[in-house]
Structure formats: structure tokens, C-alpha cells
Design a protein around this nucleic acid. Structure first.
Length: 430
RNA sequence: GCACAGGUGGCCGAGCGGUUAAUGGCAGCAGACUGUAAAUCUGCCGCUCUUUGGAGCUACGGAGGUUCGAAUCCUCCCCUGUGCA
């Protein structure tokens, strides 16, 4: 445990002073209460490679390590914003591609930006559309200039470039925008990972140049480029497949470009879990220790604990919300499939150790019924619980870092995981 | 009573002489899900065995019949719906 100086990132341009959070609150405006700093990362405590820090963004102060719920199309599916607030979520993800398609970034700009549009007072990180380059394989072609997509909504042709992605993210008003990258698939051989990574690096240069030139045009910016004004932040993304030396090279090149934060992308795309961990472990030390490090698209509850212990500050994943809609519940005792007949008359809560409102009020029997009946409320309640569980898990991680007891927490999670794997094996043998 | 139309696996509903334990859908059961084309997808779904390749049994309202072979064709019976009396 030791004190470190905070990393601050501020827009360099001169102009009007930014309105502070306190001033805005006095003015009765709860959405655009922006902090005067673009990004500040203050590490409070460390426990091994893990750090507990405060990440201050224009719209929120975020305690890290943090798990960020995914709200692709301007909504964390099935969970209204006021419940996310109740869960003490401080930062959500949005998606450039989806919001560009519908309702359109210019419309959102006219509505005052994404925060106002969706009435979300916390921070927002937007993915650049890079993941769609991966997930919409059948609907796109990649070139040096950018990516041609066919809209998944109506098949109409679209074109995304780094510059375009930046324009959209700036119009949305993200607290953190992501560089436009190519999320490399798995398996990808060395040559493929190499060329993919090179493209991502060239796109990173273009992303940054365009972003720096236009970030002050975000809807919540206080007029012109400001002296001391907050503007959106742009994070770089490390690719390189499962090759540590390529990851190193990507990290070094990105660090030279000097981003306020860095992400590790292209993981959890089908590779073995052990590899995911190895790549994270190998890449993390190559990124500046005084800036936030974000692993994109992970993971299971035990994984996010493990990765935080390796020194990851930010993570996001659709898993808690998607799994919830499919009936998979994460609990302190492991995974639970609420569809199962064995819960038909179970009067207990989803998770006896969970303090969330769903566990405090509704039985497994009722939740199973809602799911079986196709009631939309099932998706809501399951999602609220899963997110509560994820957010609570990260709270435990932060507390453990504070107390210097993170390794015990990690051991506990690992043991629980192994125990469940064993019991599942036994059950399937029986 | 007469005339049509029907009776198929938990339900709906295809099949209208052999490749049919019988297409689909629903319901049921189990599983998957990692920067969201996902309230999605996959598997099982008559019974009994099985060394997991299969084997045996029982099944398309009932009873007979035709045929090498019938859910499919014929006869009679039972039941349901609609129309007419």
C-alpha cells in the first residue's frame, strides 16, 4: 500500500471555465453535472498488482476496480436507469454502431447527448464499433480505410472509419470513447494477428488525431474549447491475439501515443480461459501504472475477481444481463438455472447471501414461474439480481484491496468455482 | 333422423399404401451464453432393455377385412363439429 500521484487528463485548449459538478447541482441540473476534469485516476491503495482507485470522469466519480454494465442501444436491457442508480452503478457502456443506426447520433446530439437522452446521470463509455467488426463477420468487409457493414436491421450499406466512429462517439457525448479497432478473432495465426494488430494501430493514430481535433464538440462541452474544461477521453486498445510479443508491441506503440487510458481487447472470443489470463497478465505491466487499464468484454464472476487481482481496473460484459434474460443466475454459491424444475416450490431467495432487492423480496419459485410464463418481469428481476451480484462482487474486491486481503478473496472464489464444477460433474455422472 | 366434415403421440396439427416411432408448432425437461444481429440458440421429448452400435415392445377412435406390407384402402360400430329437419 502506498500513495501515488493521481493521473490527470485535461483538454489543452483555452476558453471558458468548465461548470463544476457543484455549480451544476446548484443549478438543478442533475444530468450534465460535469466535473471540471476530463479524467483523473487516483490510486488509493494497492494489494499486489491490484489497485483500488477513484476514476473521476466528467459525469461521475467511479470506484475501481469497476464492472460496467452494458447498455448497447441506450439501455441496459430490461433494467431502467433509476434501478441502475439504486444499484450504485456509476458507469455504463453504450455502442457506437447501434446508436448510429438507431436512433442516429445526430438525433442524440440534438437531444443533448446520450446522458440526457437516456436520462443517465452517471458516466458513459462507448465502444467504437470495433467489436461489431468481429461479431458481424458475415455482414462486413474490412479495408484500410474502414469497414463496410450491412445493417443488421435492414441490410442497408454502411461505412465506418476511425474518423466516423470518433464523430459518432463525440456526438453521443461519451465520457470515454474507444479507438476504432479490429477485434481479432480466435483462432488467428501469427500472421493474421500481426496484420490485424497493425491495422488497429494505424486506426488508433487516425482515431486519436480526429478525436483530439473534435472532442470539444461534444454536446455537454461548455461552449468552445475551454481552459480547464472537461472533454471526452479516448482510450487506445491493445490487440495482438494470443501472442505475447505482439501484445507487447501493440502496447508499446499505443503508450507512445499517450492515451489517458488503455484497453486490452480481443479476449474472450473463444480462446481457452488460461490463455485469456496469460495475455492479461503479460500485457498489464506494459501499460502505464498510473492510468486506468480496461479489459474489454469479460467475464464470469470468478474471472472478474481474478483479473482485478492481476491489476485490471475496468471491465464490462453482457454476461450478467444476457444470462439473466436466459434464466442463468449468478450467486455466491455458483450458477443457478432458474428454469429448472427443482426450484418450482423453492421459497428461498436466488442467493441467500445477496442483499439486493430481488433477493430480499421474491422467491425462486416465483421467479421460476415468471420465467416459465414468459413474463417480462422475469428479465427485469433476473437482470437486477445479476448486476447486483456483479457490482457487489467488485465492491468486495475493492474492500479486500483496502484490507490487503485480496488473495483470500481470490482463493475463496476459486474454491467455490472448483466445488461447483465438481458437483456439476458428479450430477451429470449420476 | 338426414347431409357433409372430422377423430393422429400431453395439446394443436401434417401425413393419405412401403424410406413412419410417425413433419411442424406449442407445452415439458436439460444445456449453452464473455467490448449484445441474442426475452436467443442447442439437445432430449411412446415404453423397456442396452457392451450407446443398437435391440425389443406398444401405438394414428374401436372391431374386423383387403394386401407381401395399412395412420393411409374397404365394412360395421362409437364419438365430435357444422348445416338441414
Amino acid at each position: 500500500m502506498r500513495e501515488r500521484p493521481a493521473f490527470r487528463h485535461q483538454a489543452p485548449a483555452p476558453g471558458h471555465p468548465a461548470r463544476t459538478r457543484a455549480q451544476a447541482a446548484a443549478g438543478g441540473d442533475s444530468i450534465d453535472t460535469i466535473d471540471a476534469v476530463s479524467l483523473e485516476f487516483s490510486i488509493l491503495t494497492t494489494d499486489g498488482p491490484a489497485r483500488r482507485a477513484t476514476l473521476t470522469l466528467p459525469h461521475a466519480a467511479v470506484e475501481t476496480p469497476v464492472f460496467m454494465p452494458v447498455g448497447t442501444a441506450g439501455s441496459v436491457k430490461a433494467v431502467p436507469q433509476h434501478l441502475l442508480e439504486e444499484l450504485d452503478a456509476r458507469i455504463l457502456l453504450g455502442n457506437t454502431y447501434h446508436l448510429y443506426l438507431r436512433p442516429g447520433h445526430e438525433l442524440i446530439r440534438r437531444m443533448g447527448g446520450l446522458h440526457r437522452f437516456m436520462s443517465w446521470p452517471g458516466a458513459i463509455l462507448t465502444d467504437s464499433g470495433g467489436f461489431q467488426v468481429f461479431s458481424l463477420t458475415a455482414l462486413r468487409t474490412v479495408s484500410e480505410e474502414g469497414v463496410k457493414f450491412r445493417s443488421h436491421l435492414d441490410g442497408s450499406p454502411l461505412f465506418f472509419s476511425p474518423e466516423h466512429s470518433m464523430d459518432v462517439q463525440i456526438a453521443l457525448g461519451s465520457d470515454i470513447a474507444m479507438a476504432f479497432d479490429e477485434c481479432t478473432e480466435y483462432p488467428a495465426d501469427r500472421a493474421r494477428a500481426r496484420s490485424s494488430l497493425d491495422l488497429t494501430l494505424r486506426w488508433a493514430v487516425r482515431s486519436k488525431a480526429h478525436f483530439d481535433a473534435h472532442c470539444h464538440e461534444t454536446p455537454w462541452a461548455n461552449g468552445l474549447p475551454d481552459q480547464g474544461a472537461a472533454t471526452p477521453n479516448l482510450f487506445g486498445i491493445v490487440q495482438g491475439g494470443v501472442f505475447p510479443d505482439l501484445r507487447r508491441e501493440a502496447a508499446e506503440r499505443l503508450v507512445e501515443m499517450d492515451f489517458p487510458g488503455y484497453a486490452i481487447g480481443g479476449l474472450s472470443v473463444g480462446e481457452p480461459r488460461e490463455l485469456t489470463r496469460e495475455i492479461i497478465e503479460a500485457t498489464l505491466p506494459l501499460l502505464p501504472g498510473d492510468k486506468p487499464r480496461y479489459v474489454m468484454g469479460v467475464g464470469y464472476p470468478d474471472e472478474i475477481v481474478e483479473y482485478a487481482a492481476l491489476g485490471v481496473d475496468m471491465m464490462d460484459c453482457v454476461l450478467p444481463t444476457r444470462a439473466a434474460r436466459h434464466g442463468l443466475i449468478f450467486t455466491s454459491e455458483g450458477r443457478l438455472n432458474i428454469k429448472s424444475r427443482r426450484y418450482a416450490e423453492d421459497q428461498g431467495p436466488l442467493d441467500p447471501l445477496c442483499a439486493c432487492r430481488v433477493c430480499g423480496r421474491y422467491s425462486r419459485a416465483y421467479l421460476r414461474h415468471l420465467f416459465a410464463a414468459g413474463e417480462p418481469l422475469a428479465a427485469v428481476l433476473n437482470s437486477v439480481h445479476n448486476l447486483a451480484f456483479y457490482l457487489d462482487t467488485m465492491r468486495r474486491v475493492r474492500d479486500a484491496i483496502q484490507l490487503g486481503s485480496l488473495s483470500e478473496l481470490v482463493d475463496g472464489v476459486r474454491a467455490r468455482n472448483q466445488a461447483q464444477t465438481r458437483s456439476v460433474e458428479l450430477e451429470s455422472q449420476a
